[in-house]
């Protein structure tokens, strides 16, 4: 059995158990800071983790971190950006003004102090600071790519001393890149076939027999 402490409660669980499952056995109500239970994709189970013999305290997603003996874990609530970086869908479509939009919606982005706190905080190991700097210098596509696998856990929001909300900036870059540039030819042709009436569905035509 592996013994650890989670939010002040002792837990004793078999090896291989994740922190989230260990929390459940420790009598911690799993009603918040929890979600996908292991896929590591909903970003809800942010935690600070200190391992035995390590001075460092690291951030992690509890549902994909296996327990270790002597581990100390504190769950972290979701920290919302200090202010919403608000924009609307109409802000997304014009690629020529994308950079202006980035600077207007995320004015804090140019104030990055290069502390790398966001990089250290990211449980997915993304190069968050690089993404912020790319967006702030106008490389929207480059920034978008950095945040490909971001799960929006908001740990970088909490970590950023300049309130840049890096993941939301990254998502804005992603949305700008997609909405502003993606125009698939096959989709456009199919939409035309449908609106022109050339392609329809005969709902009665289908029988159980495979064609």
């Amino acid at each position: 059995m592996v013994n650890l402490t989670i939010d002040g409660r002792p837990a004793s669980v078999p090896e291989g158990t994740t922190i989230v499952l260990a929390a459940a056995t420790a009598g911690i109500a799993l009603t918040t800071n929890v979600g996908c239970m292991g896929q590591g994709v909903c970003g809800a189970c942010r935690a600070l983790v200190r391992r035995t013999g390590e001075p460092e305290v690291r951030t992690a997603l509890a549902c994909e971190t296996p327990v270790e003996d002597g581990m100390q874990v504190s769950f972290l609530d979701r920290v919302a950006p200090r202010r919403p970086h608000a924009y609307s869908e109409t802000d997304l479509v014009d690629g020529w003004t994308a950079y202006e939009r980035v600077l207007a919606v995320f004015p804090e982005a140019v104030r990055c102090r290069h502390c790398s706190g966001c990089d250290r905080a990211c449980p997915k190991g993304l190069e968050v600071q690089k993404g912020v700097n790319l967006a702030a210098s106008g490389d929207i596509a480059g920034a978008a790519a950095v945040f490909d696998l971001c799960v929006m856990c908001n740990l970088c929001v909490a970590a950023c001393p300049e309130h840049i909300a890096p993941n939301h900036l990254g998502l804005f870059a992603r949305r700008l890149a997609a909405a502003g540039t993606q125009r698939p030819a096959d989709l456009i042709r199919r939409l035309h076939e449908i609106t022109s009436g050339a392609m329809t569905i005969d709902a009665d035509a289908c029988t159980d027999k495979q064609p």
Binding site: E89, R175, A178, Q182, R183, P184, A185
Partner: peptide
């Protein structure tokens, strides 16, 4: 979805106005 900023993979070697 694309208008709201969702990205879809394109066929290999195709740009954003190629085939999905």
């Amino acid at each position: 979805l694309i208008e709201r900023g969702m990205t879809f993979d394109m066929e290999e070697g195709q740009g954003p106005s190629g085939r999905l």
